[in-house]
Simulated assay, not measured.
Amino acid sequence: MKKIVLVLVFIMSIVYVNAQNSKVVSAYNYLKPQYNELGKAKEAIDLATKHEKTKLKAKTWYYRGLVYQALYGSKDTAFQNLCENPLEEAKAAFLKAIELDKKGKYKEDIIKSLKIMTLQFVNKGITEFNSKDNKYEEAFKSFQNAVKINELPFIAQIDTMSVFYSAVAADRAKLYDKAIKYYKECAKYKFKGAKVYLYIENIYKEQKDTVNALKTLKEGIAAYPEDNNLLMIELINFYLNSDQSQEALLYLDKAIANDSSNYSFYFAEGTLYDKLEDFENAVKAYSKSIEINPEYFDAQYNMGALYYNKAVKLIDIANEENDNKKYEIKKAAADKVFEQAIPYLEKAHEINPKDMSTMESLKTLYYRMKKMDKFNAIKEEINKVKEQ
C-alpha cells in the first residue's frame, strides 16, 4: 500500500511540474498573431517566473522577455497598460535568461531581441524628449538603456548616436555629471566633431567651473587643429571677458592663421587693440574686417568710434593750449580725425538705420563739421525713430 502512495505522489508531482511548464508554453503560444492574447500571455509567464519549478529556467525568462517586449510594441492600449515599464521588464528578463542559459540555447535569439530593443529605447527616448512635458530625465533613462544594451559583452557595439542622445537629454535634465560623461564618450569617438567640447564647456560654465571650462576648450582646439573656429571664438571671448588681453591676442593670431577670411576674428582683434589703446593696430584690424565684409555693422561702427574717440582726445589736448595759434592748429588736426569717422558711421547707419548710437554720433559730427543739411536730416530720422 505504501508503494502505491509513493507512486501516486510521484505521478502528481510530475503532473504539477508539467502544469508549470505548460504555463511557459502557453505564454509563448498566446504571443502568436493568430491568438494575440497578450493579457493571458503575461498572466501565464508571471506565474511561471515565480514558481519554484520554472523560475530558474532560461526558457521561462526568455519567454517573459518576449511577452513584455510584445506588450510594449502593442498598439492596443489595453495591453500597453498592463505594465508600467514593459520594455525595462523585457530587458531584465532577457538578461536573466542569458545568465541562466548555460548552454547558450537561446543566446542568439535573445541578442536579436535586444538589438531590436535598443531601437525601441531610442524611439521611446525621442518621444519623451520631444514631449510637451519636457520629459528629459525619462528620455535620458531610455537613451541610456540603449547604450547599456550595446555595451553588453555579448553585443559589444558602440552606437554613438545613442551616446550623444544620452548626453543631450542629461544636459537638458541638468544631470550634468552624466551629461559630461556621455559628451566625453562622443569626444572619444570623434562624434559631432569639435562642437562636443563646446557642449562640455557650457556645462562647466553653468557650474561656474572656469578651470575645467578653459581646459576643455584647449583640449578641443588641440583635437581639431583644422576645424576649431567655434572653440577659438569661445576661448577668445573667455579671455576678453576676464581682461586677459594678451592671451586673447595669442589665440586670435592662431585663429587667423587657420582662417584668414573670417572677418569676426579681425574685428575681435580690433576691439582688443582698441582696448589696449593701440590705435594703429586697431585701425589695421578693423580695416581688414571691413575689407572682408563691408556690410558688417560692428566693424563699421567701431572704426567710426575709434576715429571719433581719438579726435575727442585731440580736442581735449587742444583745449589745454593757451596759445591761440597753436590751439587752431591742434583743433584743425582734431577736425580731420573727426572727418575720418564720418564715412564709417554713415555706412553703419546704412546697414542699421535704427541704431540710435550711430545716429547720435553722426548728429554731433555733422553739427561740428557744419554739415547742416545732413545734421537736419539725421535729426529728423532720430525723431521718427523715437516716435515709433
Rank of each mutant, 00 (worst) to 15 (best):
K135Q: 07
K254Y: 09
L252G: 04
L82G: 07
D278K: 14
A341C: 12
R64Q: 13
K205M: 15
E226Y: 08
P225Q: 02
E234Y: 01
Y72V: 05
Y239L: 06
N258I: 06
A305W: 11
C186P: 01
S142V: 04
I221R: 01
A255S: 05
S166D: 01
N229Y: 01
L31A: 11
I236T: 02
A187R: 00
D227S: 09
F140I: 02
I382Y: 04
I342H: 10
K374A: 13
R368K: 14
N18H: 09
I14Q: 15
I180C: 02
N262P: 12
K75H: 09
T271G: 09
F265M: 10
E37N: 15
P153I: 08
P353S: 14
A27I: 01
K3R: 13
A156W: 13
N324D: 15
A257I: 08
F94Y: 14
A305M: 15
Y183M: 04
P225S: 03
L362C: 05
M161I: 14
S245A: 14
K107C: 09
M356Y: 15
E43K: 10
I292D: 07
Y273I: 08
M369A: 06
T54D: 00
E269W: 05
Q144I: 07
D209L: 02
K288I: 09
D133N: 13
N383G: 14
A187C: 04
E277A: 13
I111A: 06
K103S: 14
K181Q: 11
Q120H: 12
D274E: 14
I236V: 11
E137P: 08
K347W: 09
L231H: 00
P294S: 14
F238K: 07
I315N: 02
K124V: 06
I342C: 12
A44Y: 06
N302K: 10
T364W: 10
N293R: 05
A41R: 01
Y30E: 07
Q300F: 06
T118Q: 05
A167H: 02
F375G: 04
N319L: 11
V147A: 02
Q120I: 04
A92H: 03
D316W: 03
D109Y: 14
E37I: 10
Y367I: 11
I45S: 03
E108M: 11
K174T: 07
